[in-house]
Amino acid sequence: MEAATRGCQCHALRAQDERYKRLGEIIAQYAGQPGALIPVLHHAQEVFGYLPHDVQVLVAEGLDVPLSEVDGVITFYSLFTSEPRGKYKIGICLGTACYVKGAAAVLEELKKQVGVDIGKTSADGLFTLEVTRCVGACGLAPVMTIGDDVYGRLTPEDVAGILDKYIQAEKNGKA
């Protein structure tokens, strides 16, 4: 484990990176508490957007748990990811109520429009397509979330228009 953090230039780069400073604070806050690993990973993912290998190494060292256990926890829970995600996370709910109300057809349309399969990120890095468990908004079924926005009572025809809002916002933001 030590070789991974010594020997390379990472230290120098990290020192300038606010995110690693924040990670250090999080680990210090939780170190020594029982059951700290999952809360620390939640915070770390908030800071970095995902959990790359070097972050996993730092968490393992900081909390004094084997790296294998850190990796084991990350792969077990579906909300943790070790790969970067798109700017907007699309979550289509496939809970029972949404499924009964036709979420499968909306998902197919999303795949077509975004051009990727479930769990993948579009080539432009804008969208990651994910299937979520019941979000508890069954009254609005079928439901999808994009970032913090919730869209309910969807039909496949709605998909293109909704995605376009984000694509246009992105274009205008850059222009």
Binding site: G35, L37, I38, P39, H42, E69, F76, Y77, R133
Partner: peptide, 26 residues
């Protein structure tokens, strides 16, 4: 408060306890 991380099985009582301990929720 302990916040889960997206594993349905953690609603099972022994898995939930394991998860509170910060481990894989088996």
């Amino acid at each position: 408060i302990r916040v889960g991380a997206g594993a349905f099985v953690c609603g099972e009582e022994t898995a939930l306890l394991t998860s509170i301990e910060g481990k894989r929720g088996e």
